[in-house]
Amino acid sequence: MHDEEPVFTLAVPKGRVFPEARDLLTRAGLPAADLLSEEGRLVWRAGAVRYLLMRPRDVVSCVREGVADVGLAGKDVLLEDSGGVCELLDLGIGACRLSVCGPAGPDRCWPALLAERGHTLRVATRYPRVARDFFGRRGYSPRVIELSGAVELAPQVGLADVIVDLVATGRTLRENGLVEYEVIGPITTRLVVNTVSFRWKAAAVRALCDQLVRACAPGRPVAAMRGGGGDHHGGDGMAGRQ
């Protein structure tokens, strides 16, 4: 039983990044973090911390709405919609990249594919805003088809010419006859905080940052901590990976 309000509520992503997140929180010394499990209870109270386990894509929404004060969110999700949260630390875990991918062929690039097919480029993705921004900066206005999963299926069935999605090892791409055309950017997990909690729970957030920075340090390149591109160790992506 906990009679007192938790000092802060932390949203933790389930899925492929979960083991790394749990290890990091455990190294940081957060209470009972090693007991976190994807199975069973989704709300945990341990000492002054309340943990919420949820889908990676829901972390940012919960932090924005103030359900959680802080959360571990993928940069891929933040690129799509980061309003209402502060991005405090690059935790270096869940490293992968967001890329434009398409069918394997002699040219292996999307402009060549576009020239060959002679119609408006069709892009399937879980990241419509990122895709529109990326192609828009290059002077293209593609037709973006938003999917919620199995994006790599789209070129095979004629739904899209290319996809924009996460890539870690590239195994899933190869299995589906796709290759990576162009990297949009590196992706890692970030510590995010609600903009109001950032003001009103500054001391608690500051202590958490201290703990996480120390936990990130052993054996991890500084560049990864500081968001300088990350150590692409082929780890799992955020909301799924190729």
């Binding site: 950032f198 003001r199 009103w200 500054a202 957030v205 500051r206 940052c209 920075v213 500081r226």
Partner: peptide
Amino acid sequence: TWREGSVCLPGRD
């Protein structure tokens, strides 16, 4: 912002 390792957020303290 703050210094890594010695976090100093703008706050009420």
